[in-house]
Amino acid sequence: MNNDIIINIEDVAKTYQMGAETVHALRSVSLQIRKNEYIAIMGPSGSGKSTMMNIVGCLDTPTKGTYLFENENVATMNDNELADIRNRKIGFVFQTFNLLARASTLKNVELPLVYAGVKKDERQQRAFAALESVGLQDRTHHKPNELSGGQRQRVAIARALVTKPSIILADEPTGNLDSKTGVEIMRLFGELWKNGNTVILVTHEEDIARHAHRIVRIRDGMIESDTINPSPAEV
């Protein structure tokens, strides 16, 4: 087994029961992602892209197939084991930022460390360092509603980074931003990748996906194509 492989998905399917009807969100998907890849998962709405993201992000488990995350079988894990994997190994960045409105920037970034049981002093130090790395060291005591959209997303990225996760999973990270701010955020992802992080973008926008080095297209619950991007966009 190649130790470089972080994510190893083998013949994974996911079905939902919608009343009397069975919905095949994913039919059969196999995918391997290596350390320090920069990959985009693309697809129109209804393609199974979101289901794919939920499974890759360990928010959900497949109905069928195996999913090894750094050689641990995630497919058969219970709620708490999944929570632990998400906490330690996955950094989420969402389209709607998903910050806690009542908490300060610093508290928001500290949150994953709270669940990891990190002591307060270390927690604050690490959260501050993460905010520094996204250029928000002078916004630590602001509430999310006192920040611009781009700043909020950078807080979310700091929160994703703070646990030093194995992958950063970003779901339409620029979907709620104007294009200029979107470019800034994409530049940040580029830097993260250069610093050795593994970045997974989930998007339906070609403009965003072209930053990635590998593009996986999903349609009707299957992988339609899995190609190397010969000339990733630089910003």
Binding site: L59, N87, F92, N98, Y115, T163
Partner: peptide, 16 residues
């Protein structure tokens, strides 16, 4: 509900 979802995504266990 949303907050619970965020906390869970960030690694909050059920008992937390």
């Amino acid at each position: 509900t949303k907050e619970i979802g965020i906390r869970k995504a960030l690694g909050a266990k059920n008992r937390s």
